[in-house]
Design a protein around this nucleic acid. Structure first.
Length: 560
RNA sequence: UGGGGCGUGGCCAAGUGGUUAAGGCACGGGGUUUUGAUCUCCGCAUCCCAGGUUCGAAUCCUGGCGCCCCAGCCA
């Protein structure tokens, strides 16, 4: 199963373990699971896990991946997140079929297992306060000590748990704990909590329960119930694995999934923690969960990222146990690769300046042909109107330009893409010395942008006919933070490190009219970058395009 | 200074005692080009450190060093 695609390897140490388990016949089928807690939106870090888990289900014979909402904490979770999460996973290109589950589906079984633990003398109801429990737990270097309630009889524990369940106690009054070892070096083993009292109704189970199971107890048992073979999670759960195994061993479940940990994704110039993402959204630092600057899947989707690109990115970064910080350029590379291969081309002037072709007839109009995709002849061509007055990019003209500037300056000839060669004759400036009009003469013999005489014209610039152009607003997005690792700047609040130019709005950009019929997918605006119509704010009367990512620009790099 | 992990080029990442130490991103340079895009070619590490075992070590042993995680009735 050492499969590759797109020329990059997608194998990793986890797949190697699975291969070995299949080889040794420990398992004959593979079942993984993706277990989001419905308390926020999915981000690119989740995509790594989704691609790992669902990717395995996709690549191995007879394998499946369950989608399980880990809804054990009704105080923090909202059912509205559930649909958003499902939509994101589907958008990424994965499906769970009949395997949609909720941890809450197993509340009855979980409760029965808890009773079993009590009967085995492996769990007890503690009545210490939260503060006392913390005190009794000890710390990293000192062992904890037993709770005075640790020795309660099985009968008393059973009775107390039953009353906890039916809501006879206040929150915090009692707690069901596993009886393991208060002196364990691994703090997770110092009698961890199993059930806590919460008088909150649950989106799935309503008011049935007044107690809800803790992650450590619920997760391993849910995995076992579903027959998960490989339970993949991130590194911070490594210390919980002994507990995962302890529960399953004590309960003698029919299956004992193997928990395997891998490192979570970190991307530079952004933040990934749920807390920070919530803060940015709720504090109004961004426009919402789908703000195109956010690393959320909904934000990236709105920005114009493709699922393809994200999947490719995930396969490129690999899966290991090493802490990592992936550079944004890796993501952008995956993006550009997909967009270059698939996005139709168009001409659009973002910062327009008038270009007048002085020797072109006043009322003449021509229809020229532009190729829709240089690498896909089958994508054919489109009509592009041409006339005397055009708009070109302000940055494509320069006074006293250096030799290497392959664009316009007085006396220099350039090619107007798909159109004609034009030579700049002079420019008109306003009082403050800004160029407001560029005058050129054109060579009628160069229609289509080529000449018979083989004359070399190094530069090609994009343009749009003034009278035919449609104007639009363009939102240029850049990295959300001004530093690579916002969290590392301990002296500053990460919110003060937000890149002030992460969103730049350009009004009155001039687009080729065919963009009026633009669909929602990506276009390449030649020489600029990739753009897509904003799914929320763009209308026929007021077009709004988002810049997904710029084109690589070796000229900008050189001229720095 | 308890326990658990991790350390291969700027960032990822293959490698499991014998390879010129894969590949991608980034970076530098050449070519092609009606997008200074794409494409293409070339360049770019002795493997945290120190000892040791071995004919031979990134891979094995010993000792260091560095970084990450854990003291929620969160997940």
């Amino acid at each position: 199963m050492n499969d590759t695609f797109d020329g990059t390897t997608s194998s990793n140490f986890i797949r190697a373990i699975i291969d070995a388990d299949l080889e040794s016949a420990k398992h004959t089928q593979v079942i993984t699971r993706f277990p989001p807690e419905p308390n926020g939106h999915l981000h690119i870090g989740h995509a790594k896990s989704i691609c790992l888990n669902f990717g395995i289900a996709q690549d191995y014979v007879n394998a499946t991946c369950h989608l399980r909402f880990d809804d054990t904490n009704p105080g923090k979770e909202k059912s509205e997140y559930i649909n958003a999460i499902k939509e994101d996973i589907r958008w990424l290109g994965f499906e769970w079929g009949d395997n949609l589950h909720h941890t809450s589906d197993y509340f009855d079984q979980l409760y029965a297992y808890a009773i079993q633990l009590i009967k085995k003398g492996k769990a007890y109801v503690d009545s210490l306060s939260a503060d006392d429990i913390r005190l009794y737990r000890g710390n990293l270097t000192e062992p904890g000590k037993n709770s005075p309630f640790r020795g309660r009889s099985v009968e008393e524990n059973l009775e107390l748990l039953d009353k906890m369940k039916s809501g006879e106690f206040a929150e915090g009054e009692h707690l069901l704990r596993a009886k393991i070892d208060m002196a364990a070096a691994n703090i997770n083993l110092r009698d961890p909590a199993i059930y806590r009292i919460k008088h909150i109704s649950h989106p799935m189970t309503g008011d049935k329960w007044h107690i809800y199971p803790m992650y450590d107890f619920a997760h391993c048992v849910s995995d076992a119930i579903e027959g998960i073979t490989h339970s993949l999670c991130t590194l911070e759960f490594e210390n919980h694995r002994p507990l995962y195994d302890w529960f399953l061993n004590e309960l003698k479940t029919s299956a004992h999934p193997q928990q395997i940990e891998f490192s979570r994704l970190n991307l530079d110039y952004t933040v990934m923690s749920k807390r920070k993402l919530h803060e940015l959204v709720e504090g109004g630092y961004v426009s919402g969960w789908d703000d195109p600057r956010l690393p959320t899947l909904s934000g990236m989707r709105r920005r114009g990222y493709t699922a393809n690109a994200i999947r490719d990115f995930c396969s490129r970064i690999g899966v290991t146990k090493k802490e990592n910080m992936i550079e944004m350029s890796v993501l952008e590379n995956s993006l550009r690769e997909d967009l270059d291969a698939n996005a139709p081309r168009a001409l659009a002037v973002l910062d327009p300046i008038k270009l007048l072709i002085t020797n072109y007839p006043e009322d003449k109009e021509e229809i020229l042909q532009g190729v829709n995709h240089p690498k896909k002849p089958e994508a054919a061509t489109r009509d592009i109107p041409f006339s005397k007055e055009l708009y070109i990019e302000r940055s494509d003209y320069m006074d006293d330009a250096p030799k290497k500037f392959f664009r316009l300056t007085v006396g220099r000839e350039v090619r107007l893409r798909f159109a004609y060669y034009v030579t700049c004759t002079h420019v008109v400036k306003n009082d403050t010395g800004d160029v407001i009009e560029v005058h050129c003469s054109y060579d009628p013999e160069t229609r289509g942008g080529k000449s018979e005489d083989g004359r070399k014209v190094k530069g090609t610039i994009h343009w749009v006919s003034a009278k035919h152009a449609v104007s639009a607003q363009i939102r240029q997005y850049d990295r959300l933070f001004s530093v690579p690792v916002p969290a590392a700047e301990k002296a500053k609040d990460y919110k003060d490190l937000i890149n002030k130019d992460s969103l730049q709005v350009l009004e009155n950009c001039q687009l080729e009219s065919s963009l009026l019929d633009a669909n929602t997918s990506a276009y390449q605006f030649e020489r600029q970058g990739y753009f897509c119509q904003d799914s929320v704010d763009s209308t026929q009367d007021a077009l709004v395009f988002n810049r997904i990512v710029t084109l690589r620009d070796s000229w900008a790099k050189k001229s720095k």
